[in-house]
């Protein structure tokens, strides 16, 4: 069985054909060359494959590509509209607060953070911890990540005032 689908990723439509057993993570990487989506565990434990689907953070390793057809997908590559040279406030904050070490978890972590601050513009420590508990970071011990999400949220609030 081969199924033609349209994947809407970062505002662009891609008409491709997939088999039902193809996993969204692999399709994003292998066919659309979006390497910011990472394989970390393959079973939904590490969050490295996080993407935003219709406004909610989900795991692309546990999603069939065919199931994602027609829905809006945002990957880390699409966090800032193409051609926009500025970073997203969360991205800036991750660099400033030392929330990036090896960087492998970073794309998924930032997307989870974005899904959080979109709903909760001034999150507490515990709200942040809850939002990122599905994203494994083996380097940082999470402290600087929590700080970065707070700082990023603050930057977003500041910018919206302007």
């Amino acid at each position: 069985m081969r199924i033609p689908i349209v994947l809407k990723v970062n505002g662009k439509e891609h008409s491709i054909e997939v088999k039902p057993n193809e996993i969204l993570l692999n399709v994003l990487r292998d066919k659309l060359h979006l390497i910011g989506v990472k394989y970390g565990c393959g079973i939904g434990e590490c969050g490295a494959c996080t993407v935003i689907l219709n406004g909610r953070a989900i795991l692309s390793c546990q999603t069939l590509a065919v199931s994602a057809a027609g829905r809006e997908i945002t990957t880390i590559e699409g966090l800032v509209p193409e051609g926009n040279k500025e970073l997203h406030p969360l991205q800036e904050a991750f660099i400033e607060e030392g929330a990036v070490q090896c960087g492998f978890c970073t794309p998924g972590m930032i997307l989870s953070a974005k899904a959080l601050v979109d709903k909760n513009p001034d999150p507490s420590n515990s709200a942040i911890k809850e939002a990122i508990r599905g994203n494994l970071c083996r380097c940082t011990g999470y402290i600087n990540i929590i700080k970065a999400i707070k700082t990023g949220a603050e930057k977003i609030r500041e910018r919206s005032k302007r």
């Binding site: 590559e77 991205q91 991750f94 660099i95 970073t106």
Partner: peptide
């Protein structure tokens, strides 16, 4: 503190790892 040199690549998903 200065922004780390590899920071932008890592927060934008453009850092390339062997995989």
């Amino acid at each position: 503190d200065f922004p780390r040199k590899d920071g932008i690549a890592r927060v934008t998903g453009r850092e390339v790892y062997p995989s």
